[in-house]
Design a binder for these strands. Structure first.
Lengths: 262, 262
DNA sequence: CGGATTCTTGAAGTCGCTCAACGAACGTGG
DNA sequence: CCACGTTCGTTGAGCGACTTCAAGAATCCG
């Protein structure tokens, strides 16, 4: 059954992935064709035989514990990674300590594309919970592009999509009020969960308030106050990191730039 | 002679490109191998014969008048464009009127990569002065990738580089004070002109104050005030749109996050 | 020249930040 | 299982950076 909702009271350390999907991932660990993410991930749209070829080059599946790094800035670049289970954040930390979380990744998302330009990773990737990734050797991927034009085409779409995603964040950071930024953040999370078969109205935040704030260019106190206001206004119900979207329409209106009445 | 500096008092409508380069572009309009931008542009690093192949697929060179659109959001995507002469801005305008200038492009920069994902352009591209672009049919480019692996590799580097560029803007918008953002903007412009053989310390702003402000998430009045402060502090000399960087070190210190003394 | 656009400067206002204190949840070790 | 230190989150009061509003100066360009 698709569209399992994230569960209610789960201790933080346990990956909040529906048991069925999680078990599924364990059992059929090594083949894209049986992976539930094959319609989101890099091999999307490949035929049977091409997907098998792709499968051949995919390296080991790695488990990354919570708070551990998948890669660090300036690490040599050899692999792209596809998130299989769990959540990650990518961040850049400047010499002077300035930090920006550039994105949150969930199953099906591809990590490491910003490393291609320089041969070294350009950001850190940190697991927000115990997670798993598929390791994709980039040089082998490049060889495969010659064989499978549709794989190349999809890869370009993914990179282009990443550029778009970042443009959207630029709009958020450059143009929007705090309230609107947070509304956009929630609607975005919601639709990403929806396209992965999870509940769009009922999910668990894998990141701290501080990380949300950093990503949105706001302080932790602002996030806290905004959540309180959203809740008071009846847009959402927030219990610790458990979020229930109560008024999707109003939230989307906020995200579109309409000011809140309160 | 390389490193020509931009010139002093030039009317706005005239492209502020050194005469020699401009004439060069006119005369040898249709071949990458004689283009002064071949070390920045898409065919960078190709050998003679591969560059000739690439040259074959490059379509017409277009002239775009100031304030005219190279493409508009939602236009069907057929071509990437390489800036040959002049400057552009790319912007996204949301339904509610929110606008964000996502970048300023100069000769050698590649335009339109955000369109690959959806088959339609995701932003507007507007000429800031009378400009010229080379039109690169994307479907032919894709075919060529099979022939010229090094072209594909460089294309990936360019897309990855675009992702990095936008991450840097995210840091600017999310983490930095107004002062620091402007300093970063200037040092960035400076180094881009330097890598194109222009003076890094003496250049003409092709964009309005308002456009700088929009790009940096600030109001036009803030830009104006900051420029006045920078000038008073002796970091730069600003005469209308003519900029001379007087204290490169201090400006870079500001850009790195050190607060100004004033 | 003269209207329109762009830019500058000042004064007042506001949104989000800083600082501070407290409370809740976690998780490690007894 | 509870105790206790630590991390994380909430709330309030005051402040400051940037915005908004407004007016005027400079520049552009037909």
């Amino acid at each position: 059954m698709l569209a399992p909702s994230t569960q209610g009271r789960i201790a933080r350390t346990i990956p909040v992935i529906p048991d069925s999907a999680s078990a599924h991932a364990q059992e059929q660990a090594n083949h894209c064709h049986s992976c539930s993410l094959r319609n989101l991930c890099l091999p999307t749209g490949l035929g049977e035989s091409d997907m098998a070829k792709f499968d051949m080059i995919v390296g080991r599946r790695h488990r990354i514990e919570r708070d551990k790094f998948l890669y660090r800035m300036n690490d040599p670049f050899k692999y792209l990674y596809a998130v299989r289970v769990g959540h990650f954040k990518t961040q850049r930390i400047e010499d002077n300590g300035e930090q920006q979380i550039t994105g949150f990744q969930m199953p099906g998302d591809l990590l490491g594309m910003d490393a291609i330009a320089g041969g070294h990773h350009y950001s850190d990737s940190v697991a927000l919970e115990d997670s798993e990734v598929c390791e994709i050797p980039f040089s082998k991927l490049e060889q495969l592009f010659a064989d499978i034009p549709s794989l190349l085409r999809h890869f370009h779409r993914l990179m282009s999509h990443e550029i778009r995603r970042e443009q959207n964040i630029m709009i958020s950071l450059g143009n929007m009020r705090a309230e609107q930024r947070l509304a956009v953040f929630f609607t975005n999370l919601s639709s990403r969960y929806a396209s992965r078969g999870y509940s769009p109205s009922n999910f668990h935040l894998r990141m701290k308030r501080e990380e949300i704030g950093n990503h949105l260019g706001l302080r932790i106190e602002s996030i806290s106050r905004l959540l309180a206001r959203f809740q008071k206004a009846g847009y959402v119900k927030v219990d610790n990191r458990e979020v229930r979207i109560l008024d999707k329409i109003r939230l989307e209106t906020l995200a579109a730039g309409e000011m809140a009445a309160c």
